[in-house]
């Protein structure tokens, strides 16, 4: 019997060596690489986003890349360039300065999409959206008036969204302490955050930095980071004054957790990031938003 087994194994080995012929790899991909014109916006994006950060910056709209529930139009390329320059300076390079360039290379969304119009419903317009840490879309890019770029407009339309969505990636990779959710455990209202009853005044009084922060704890958490970073010095104190008691102390309790989380989990000092972003706002005037070569 042993012999049979040996024969059998020998035969099986021989058979396993006998397989179908394989075609070799094709010499050339069937997909055609886009031709990059030197000095073009595509080339600029390649050199400023793809090569340094491994990010695809999309400004040519493809409807399959958007939420087809909304009607949208593409970005004007000049405006897309301005937004690309602003994000690079105010967001990516701010993080580079604080954390070193590898931080964004490792953790940033892989795709940024800019869209000309907003995402309108009968009552609302969305300024941006994000897909599970992979992609972030910024809307209303065609509304950017390059001559009238200022901290308020940029924060409201683009930068707050960037800091907000990126902070989701951080807590998705390393969750924050459950103590955060316990500060205002019964005040989260999900979609009801949009209700007329949830005014900014009420949200502040209850210990939330924005109306949307009341949606759920993770939104609350990232709203604090986004607002804290983009708003000017003194803004947080002003919100506390508006919140009164107990809102002010609840806001501070949340901010303490946010700061220690970022420090302990990511070695990121929120105050340093705030200071860097504020300094960069003051330097924005030196940025040429219209010229590819400057």
């Amino acid at each position: 019997m042993k012999k049979i087994v040996v024969y059998f194994i020998a035969c099986a080995l021989a058979a396993s060596a006998w397989s179908c012929a394989e075609e070799g790899p094709r010499s050339k991909s069937i997909f055609e690489d886009p031709v990059m014109q030197p000095g073009s916006l595509d080339q600029w994006l390649l050199e400023n986003y793809t090569y340094p950060y491994n990010i695809q910056f999309m400004y040519k709209l493809r409807d399959i890349e958007t939420d087809r529930g909304y009607e949208m139009v593409p970005a004007i390329p000049d405006k897309a360039l301005a937004v690309a320059k602003i994000l690079k300076y105010m967001f990516y390079e701010a993080y580079d300065e604080v954390m070193g360039v590898d931080f964004m290379r490792s953790h940033s969304q892989r795709v940024i999409q800019v869209v000309g119009s907003g995402a309108y419903t009968t009552n609302t317009v969305k300024k941006g959206s994000a897909e599970s840490g992979m992609k972030i879309s910024l809307y209303l890019v065609n509304d950017l008036t390059i001559a009238r770029v200022n901290q308020e407009v940029l924060s409201e339309f683009y930068l707050k969204t960037m800091f907000h969505e990126f902070s989701h990636i951080l807590h998705q990779k390393r969750e924050f302490t459950t103590a955060f959710k316990q500060i205002t455990p019964s005040e989260y209202v999900n979609d009801e955050w949009m209700s007329d009853g949830n005014t900014l005044e009420i949200a502040l009084q209850k210990g939330f930095i924005s109306r949307y922060a009341r949606a759920e704890p993770h939104e609350d958490f990232v709203e604090i980071i986004a607002f804290y970073v983009v708003k000017p010095d003194g803004w947080w104190e002003e919100q506390k004054r508006l919140a009164g008691d107990p809102g002010a102390s609840l806001l501070d309790a949340k901010l303490d957790i946010v700061k220690s989380y970022l420090k302990e989990s990511w070695a990121l000092d929120l105050d340093v990031l705030h200071a860097v972003v504020q300094r960069r706002f003051s330097e924005l005037g030196e940025l040429n938003l219209e010229d590819l070569l400057k």
């Binding site: 400004y59 040519k60 909304y70 949208m72 139009v73 970005a75 004007i76 000309g116 119009s117």
Partner: peptide
């Protein structure tokens, strides 16, 4: 990319 003629018909 944005075209002031073509996208007139899609602008929300």
């Amino acid at each position: 990319t944005y075209n002031k003629v073509m996208h007139f018909f899609s602008e929300p």
